[in-house]
Amino acid sequence: MKAAVIVFPASNCDRDAKVALTEMTGKAPAMVWHQDSDLPDVDLVVIPGGFSYGDYLRCGAMASQSPVMRSVKAHAEKGGAVLGICNGFQVLTESHLLPGALMRNAGLKFVCKPVTLKVEETQSAFTRGYNNGQSVVFPVAHGEGNYYADDATLDRLEGEGRVVFRYAANPNGSARDIAGILSEKRNVLGMMPHPERVVDGATGGTDGRALFKSLIETLS
């Protein structure tokens, strides 16, 4: 599997994504600067966590307008896999690659802690390595992870099996405890929790490995 990680000026989980991908795939991903309009030929694009453009105006709003996002959209339209983590999820909703929006946490505070997630859907390139209903622990670290969409959209997401991860104990007020969703074509995943922080057992667990393994198996 060939992967690329998008780097916005204030991305700050780009290195973590790179380390996790390198560990799991055995080769370093391409790091693509936000001003580059060309994306290398890859199977997976990761939009990492961080604060892209300082998260001024709205998280992910300005990033969604950057040159590289036009290429990411084209990649997604061709069926290429896109994984948006944390700020990356915000960029994906702002770019309309995923429905809904991420609002300020209901508790109004940034929250960083390990959370238990339920794997709701294994019919995807991202989660086929998990068992349906499996509990996994990933850290969250965000101030605006409160997923919002209107009821019709939420019903549709649930009906189509596009809610991939749900919080066991909701940390941010997210609608229907949603932690991660798929696009209609199931090739774009946005999630607030950080799978790349649970690849290396020395720093908090290994529950994220199966996500990368699933991608490698599907996309290689």
Binding site: R58, Q65, T93, A149
Partner: peptide, 9 residues
């Protein structure tokens, strides 16, 4: 429409 507001919310 393009940037200043997120018309979803």
């Amino acid at each position: 429409e393009k940037l200043l507001a997120n018309t979803v919310i």
